[in-house]
């Protein structure tokens, strides 16, 4: 196989793993469970003020 094709294959497989597997199944942003910015702010401020 030409090296150019091999490199394209590596890029595509890598991007598929990163965006279709890791992003979807393992890396959901923690704050995405809150619907509004105010709820996200409240959650983080609570963490910053209540933590011993």
């Amino acid at each position: 196989m030409e090296v150019g094709k091999t490199l394209w294959l590596i890029i595509l497989i890598k991007l598929a793993i990163i965006f279709l597997i890791l992003r979807v199944f393992f890396f959901r942003p923690e704050l995405s469970k809150y619907d509004t910015e105010a709820e996200k702010a409240e959650h983080v401020i609570e963490n910053l003020t209540k933590q011993p």
Binding site: R23, E30, V44
Partner: peptide, 26 residues
């Protein structure tokens, strides 16, 4: 060759910010 193997490996760091370091990210 280096570019193809290295490209987008930094994106994973940004994923980690949102998932593992959410207080920091906010």
């Amino acid at each position: 060759i280096n570019f193809a193997c290295g490209v987008a490996t930094g994106i994973i760091l940004e994923f980690e910010f949102g998932t593992n370091w959410s207080n920091y990210s906010w």
